[in-house]
Design a protein around this nucleic acid. Structure first.
Lengths: 178, 178
DNA sequence: GTTAGTGCAAACCTTTTGCAGCTCT
DNA sequence: AGAGCTGCAAAAGGTTTGCACTAAC
């Protein structure tokens, strides 16, 4: 699937591919990232400073309705906005690290298998599927362990300090009592 | 897993299980539906008219952070609010009909398989996974076909009417021309 | 020349925050 | 007493809508 396919699909529906929509489609296609409405708007403004935020929302809605983009939430890691993926790639799951926010994409047949199973199990006609997985990437697993170790260390030191201060108090009382 | 497990988990974290929270937990547990904050609030109001909407949001946030409920979007079929599922059942996918809004739950190993594959593929530690599938339930597939047939029929009739009116015009012109 | 699309401002809906008072322990 | 929790009001964040003007077919 290509950008031209998307544009063709729009024209077929009597939707006009205006200058603004062209800009937004290009950005969605090029930018490797997962953009939300605001991010897309910021990039679009660089190409056309007059382009309005509302146009971005309207275009995204249009593309979503036409099944040309997928709407993601990325586990609400950054907030409650929606992110968008053109459907130019194969179906994939999004894997979000809950510590650093990195997003990986997982392709592979377990996804197709799941889809097929749901279709046969319910006699359901699947139109779109979305899998989002939250957890910790290999890098952050290590960092979390270090953080936990450091926290435990601080606790031990705090406990030791408390003990010292208690015994100091005892000594001080003993002195006052003479 | 049971409601008591959830309550225990909260207490262990130094979280108080107050009257309000008890009400909300009961409702989440009992109601078979997928409730959103507003729906939960409406039900809670019946048991305690003083209970505030904000308390609902705060409790849901707490439960989410503790990993005691899953947050769903149900493909934004009804809007952008979030829905909540206690994690008392086995992991499952949500299957949403885009015509009637019915939500089915799919259990079964393709889900576990997908999770395992992602863990091994990325060395990722999965904490929570969410699969939402949109499409048409078997019932609505039939209805959609009927709707399409009816639309085609109307088109044919409209075309026929247009032809009639054109030939009527021709006849009228002929009459006027005498 | 019609129909669709745009920009602007204002509204909307869901969710969060600040704060004073209340409640468990 | 002290930490945690609640209600209220107000704000925030993201998204949609009404309307007059403009651009594409």
């Amino acid at each position: 699937m290509s950008l031209e396919t998307i544009q063709g699909s729009l024209k077929k529906r009597g939707v006009r591919v205006t200058r603004q929509r062209q800009i937004l489609l290009d950005l969605l296609d090029q930018s490797g990232q997962h953009l939300d409405a605001e991010g897309l708007f910021q990039l679009a403004k660089e190409r056309d400073p007059k382009l309005n935020r509302v146009t971005v929302y309207r275009t995204l809605k249009l593309l979503k309705q036409g099944g040309l983009v997928d709407e993601l939430d990325l586990m609400h890691f950054t907030g409650d906005q929606h992110f968008y993926d053109t459907r130019l790639k194969q179906e994939h799951a999004h894997v979000i690290c809950l510590r650093c926010g990195k997003v990986e994409e997982f392709f592979g047949e377990p996804l197709q298998q799941l889809r097929k199973r749901i279709e046969t199990h319910f006699g359901f006609q699947v139109v779109l599927a979305r899998t989002e997985v939250g957890g910790f990437c290999s890098h952050c697993q290590v960092l979390r362990q270090q953080e936990r170790d450091a926290a435990r260390q601080r606790q031990i030191e705090a406990a030791a300090a408390a003990t010292n201060s208690r015994s100091n108090n005892v000594r001080a009382r003993a002195r006052r009592a003479g």
